[in-house]
Every structure is written in structure tokens, then in C-alpha cells.
Design a protein around this nucleic acid. Sequence first.
DNA 1: CGAATTTGACCAGCGC
DNA 2: GCGCTGGTCAAATTCG
Length: 313
Amino acid sequence: MMMEKREEEMEVAAAAGVSPFFADQIGGIFDMAFDVRGADKSSQGFLELLGFHDLPGPLFDIPVPAPLVDAAPSVPPPESSEVLNFPATPNSSSISSSSTEAATDTADPAKPHPEEEELGKAKKTSGSKEGIKKKGQKRQREPRFAFKTKSEVDHLEDGYRWRKYGQKAVKNSPFPRSYYRCTNAACGVKKRVERSSEDPAVVVTTYEGQHNHPCPVVPRGGHPAPQPPLAAEPAPPPPGLGFVFPSFQAKDLHFPYFTSYLPPPLDFQHVSTGIVASAPGDRRPCNPTADIPMRDHGLLQDLIPSDIRKKEE
DNA sequence: CGAATTTGACCAGCGC
DNA sequence: GCGCTGGTCAAATTCG
């Protein structure tokens, strides 16, 4: 319906914004964008939103021969941004992202804070744990962003543990949409996973909210991801999604045109082997790669490399 | 036995 | 107001 419409629009816009960079600069391997509406763009970069606060230099240098998921149009949508994304799970070969529903305007002073929303989240049945939403108050949404991944598995490993709490059939799609919530009781992050009706091989994952805790990082069915040496210096859980790259080494990854941000959540162990946190010390639990001094350009800094920004300026 | 998943029901929001 | 769809709950079921 309308939500669907909106989502479609967002996705299109996302795809549109991506291509120029990805298609030309990295062979069109990745094609993604994030919807960070609702986030404070002026003070919080996308990576920060994700939990990537201190990212190291050139991030990735992944020889990814995989095909791209989406073709890339050209005019970047005004409100969507693009960010790298990577194959995450075994079988995933390529990724693309798309912004999704507008995370409702957190800018609107009249509307409650995301946190408030959590509390006020309407629970139909009275006595809900989550509280009761005030009447007439629109449901507030956390900033969201989505990305597409060409993968055989629906649920991509991102280092966090998720509990599935629902599944719904999606209109105009033969594939159901699954709803997951972070298993950390204090963490309200959610994510939706669905397959693209257009390309069944493509999994669309939409994250909503930010993790407020360190990631458990214990990739399913595998060796625990090499955790950064945090023991001596436990990093506080970043107010971001805190996506994880359980087992990849930043130096092994390099994306010339996207050196100031990291891609979202994904398990790189199947993309690049032998990967380890690139540097000890100041590392967050879920983003072993981290150290890139980031200037505050708001969302822009996360999306467009400085040299590109200069050109555009 | 606890945790995770499945699944039907219910509610909110939106367009008509 | 009605119908449709997305999103969430929670009981039942399955899994480890």
C-alpha cells in the first residue's frame, strides 16, 4: 500500500544515489544506500550511527568479483545516502543497499524521541511490557537503513544475536518478511529481513535503531570472531548500531572511494579469510576496524570521500 | 528445561 | 468509516 510505495520509492532513490561511485569506482560491486532519516545528520555521521566512530584509513581492499545486485541510476536522492556494504554470510556474493522507509522525522519537535517511542510503543493489548502509546501519537521510528545482499541465506550474520519475533507475508512478494529483535533486553534494535520479489537471490535487510551494548560476536556455527583486544580497555558500547565484522582485517579491505566509513554489519569471514582486528587498543567490540579520524561532515562524511566532496564543491 | 522459532491474532496507520 | 497492510505480541511448538 502506501508504506510499500514509500519503501519502493526509497529503494529506487537509494539505488539512484549509489551508482556513480560504486559502479565507476569499485566496479559496481556494491550498491547501497542508507536511510538515516531521523538521525541527527548534522552531528552524527552515518558510521557513528552504525557504531563506527573511529575508523582506520583506507578501509577495504576486497577483490570482490561478485556481481552487483543493482544497476545504478545516477542522481543521488536528496535524502538518501549511500554506504558500502559487504557480503556477510556464506553464500552471499554481493550487496547493495537501499534506503528504506523514512525513519520518521525525529526532527519534528512535536514528536517524541526515539527512546520515548520505545517506551510509548503501542502495545495493543493493555499491560504490555513496552507500555502504551498515547492516543493520537504517531508511532515514532528509529533511524533505519537497509541494504541488499545477494545471499542464499536470509538472516545475515552481523555479530549480534537476534530473536525472530514475527513473520509476515508481504504484498506483491512471494517471500515472507521476517522480523528480528536484538536479544539484548536493553537493546531495542530491530531488523527486517525479506527477499526481493524481483530477485529472489537478493536479501533485503533493514535495520532500525541503534545497539547500545557491545556485540556478542559469536558467529553461528563457527569459530568465535576474533575480538579486538578489549579486555584491557573495554570500550563502552557505542550509541550506534555497532555492526560487526567478526573476522576481517581492515587492511585487507580497501575501497578507494570510501575511506571514511565502514559498511554495516556483516560477517566477513567468508569474504576475506584470516582477518583480524587491525589494531589493538581503542576498539569497539563490534567494529574491529576503527581508527579513521573522522571530521564531522555529518552524514556526508560517511558517504562521500573527501576528494569527491571537493570536486562536488 | 531454557531459548529460539512459528504462527495466528490483534492493533495502528493510511488511503479511499 | 472501511479495508488493507505493516508491525508486534504471545501462546504453542521446536530445538539444543
